[in-house]
C-alpha cells in the first residue's frame, strides 16, 4: 500500500510518467484507430437506425469519460485534502480541461446524432441537460483555479468546490430527471445488459472506450507533468525575488 504514495513525489512522478507516456499514447492511438475504423467501416448499418448509430463510437466513450474525469478529480481532491500531496492537486487541475472537452464532444456528437434521430439538434432531455450542467461545473472549477494566485490556496479552494460540486451535480441529475422525463434511450451500454447492443457493434465500441480511457490517461499524465514544471518554475521565480 505504501508503494503507491511514492509517486506523490513530483520527481518520481515525472520520471515514471515520461517512461510510460509513449506506451500509453501509442496504445491509445492504436485502440482509437482500430476501434473507429472497425466501427465506422466494418460493421453493418443497424436495421432501425441506419448509419447514424455509428456515432456512438465517439458519443458513448466521450460521455463516459466526461463523468469519469470528474470522478477522478473528486478522488484527487480528496487525496489532496487528506494527504496534502501536491501532485494530486495538480493532477486534478490537469484533468479538468480534458474532462470539459470530453463533455463538449459528448454534447456535440449528441446534437449531431439527435438531428436525424429526434429531428432536432437540441432537446431539453434529462441526459443532455445533465451534461450541460456538468459542463458548467467544469467551467466554474477551471475558472476558480485560474483566479486564485496562491497555488496551495487554489488547490484547497478548488478541492472543496469539487466536493460540494459533486454533491450538487448528483442532486441536479435527479432534479433534472424529475423536471423532464425525456426522449433519450436508457443506458445503451452496461456490462450486464449486453443485449442492448448486438455483439457486432459492441466489441468495436469496447475498443473505442479503451482508446478514450488511454487517451485520457495520456493527456492527464502529460498535463500533470506540465503543471508540475509550471508550479516548480513559479516557486523558483518567487525564490529569485526573495534574494
Amino acid at each position: 500500500m505504501n508503494a503507491i504514495w511514492q509517486y506523490a513525489n513530483p520527481k518520481k512522478f515525472i520520471d515514471t510518467s515520461e517512461r510510460l507516456l509513449p506506451w500509453v499514447a501509442g496504445l491509445a492511438a492504436l485502440c482509437l484507430g482500430v476501434g473507429l475504423i472497425w466501427g465506422y467501416f466494418l460493421t453493418p448499418d443497424a436495421e432501425r437506425f441506419g448509419a447514424t448509430v455509428k456515432i456512438i463510437y465517439l458519443h458513448v466513450p466521450a460521455a463516459m469519460m466526461a463523468i469519469s474525469a470528474w470522478f477522478m478529480m473528486l478522488v484527487a481532491s480528496l487525496i489532496w485534502i487528506i494527504r496534502r500531496h501536491h501532485v494530486s492537486a495538480l493532477a486534478a487541475r490537469a484533468a479538468a480541461p480534458v474532462g470539459a472537452v470530453m463533455t463538449v464532444i459528448g454534447l456535440v456528437t449528441g446534437a449531431i446524432w439527435g438531428q436525424p434521430m429526434w429531428g432536432t439538434w437540441w432537446a431539453w432531455d434529462p441526459r443532455l441537460t445533465s451534461f450541460l450542467i456538468l459542463f458548467l461545473f467544469y467551467l466554474g472549477y477551471i475558472a476558480l483555479w485560474a483566479a486564485i494566485e496562491d497555488d496551495d490556496s487554489a488547490a484547497d479552494l478548488t478541492s472543496i468546490l469539487c466536493l460540494v460540486g459533486s454533491v450538487f451535480a448528483v442532486l441536479s441529475r435527479y432534479a433534472v430527471n424529475f423536471w423532464n422525463q425525456g426522449l433519450h434511450q436508457g443506458a445503451s451500454l452496461s456490462l450486464d445488459k449486453e443485449e442492448n447492443v448486438a455483439d457486432v457493434f459492441y466489441i468495436p465500441l469496447l475498443v473505442c472506450i479503451a482508446g478514450f480511457v488511454l487517451l485520457f490517461v495520456a493527456l492527464v499524465l502529460m498535463r500533470t507533468g506540465t503543471e508540475i514544471r509550471a508550479r516548480r518554475m513559479r516557486v523558483l521565480l518567487a525564490r529569485e525575488r526573495m534574494k
Partner: peptide
Amino acid sequence: APPAPDDFDEAFA
C-alpha cells in the same frame, strides 16, 4: 535560508 537547489521533491517551496 533558500532551500537547496536540487530539492525537487514533495515540497514545492
